[in-house]
Amino acid sequence: MFGKKPLIGEDLHDWITENFDWVESERPFWWQMAELIRPTKEYFHAPGGHNHETALLVFEDIKRLLGTTQPIELEPLPDLPDELLHEYGRMSDTAGQYWDDAETPLITYNPKLMRRPVVFINTLAHELIHARLSPVVDDLPGGEPAHELATDLHAIIAGFGVIQLEAAEQAGWAGYMSQASRAVALAEFMHRKAIAPEDAFAYLSKRPASWLRKALAAY
């Protein structure tokens, strides 16, 4: 009667698990190669730097981790004022965008994001998931209306949950998924992959770690 209130509603929770189930059954290769990606040299080989050459190396690392072989171009956006990066709901416009209206898809990014590597990695991963999901948007649970939300979720299903949860905290915005729903999705990923909690907590600051701890308590 007075039990703990779930972090998210039942319908949203069901949608999250349905997407996990869809990937496992319909795209088993995606699921088999997914691992818990952490912001370390084990996964990202680019040296320090804020230039486009460094961005391309990070981009190639993420493509490798996702198993993406499709040719996709990467270009920096024009320099934008810092304050735009903190406007809630504007992150997808100012941080990066995916364009698929030419022969070769294009991802654009704001170079200022490279000051915060976790946020930058998360931005590129989100846009590359757009490319992954583009052919199957209508087949996913929720279909086209849930596409942007699904892009966040499928980045977590692909192993970028720790990075996404921490990036949202660092950037000071929520994005398409809430931190609570991200934590639930990351907990689902860790449960299905039998990943030890400490493998994630070591790379999360206080508030994201608290969200994840609450989500893991359900298992």
Score class of each variant (00 low, 15 high):
P71R: 09
H130G: 07
E144T: 07
G142I: 15
E127S: 07
W99P: 01
A34P: 11
S210L: 07
E87K: 10
A194C: 14
D199Q: 14
R116M: 07
E42Q: 14
D21L: 11
L212E: 09
F20Q: 11
I37Y: 10
Y176G: 02
H130D: 04
I129F: 06
W30D: 07
E35M: 04
E42R: 14
I156D: 00
G9Y: 06
H191M: 15
A187H: 09
Q170D: 12
R116Y: 07
S178W: 00
A171M: 05
A180Y: 07
A146Y: 10
T68C: 12
D139N: 14
A209E: 09
P28Y: 00
M33E: 13
P76H: 05
E148A: 12
K193N: 06
A34Y: 08
W99S: 01
I72K: 01
Y203W: 13
L77H: 02
R192V: 14
E83Y: 10
Q164D: 13
A194K: 15
E60K: 15
A131T: 01
A34C: 12
Q164N: 12
N51H: 10
T54H: 14
L124I: 14
A150N: 14
A131Y: 00
L186I: 08
A155N: 05
G9L: 11
A209L: 06
T17L: 15
V184I: 11
T40D: 11
H86K: 04
K63R: 15
G175N: 05
P6A: 02
D93F: 00
H154S: 04
I62D: 09
A217T: 06
H50V: 06
D138Q: 10
P135S: 00
P81N: 04
P78A: 08
K5M: 06
V184L: 07
K4M: 08
E24V: 05
K206E: 15
I8M: 05
A194E: 15
A146P: 00
L80I: 09
A150I: 09
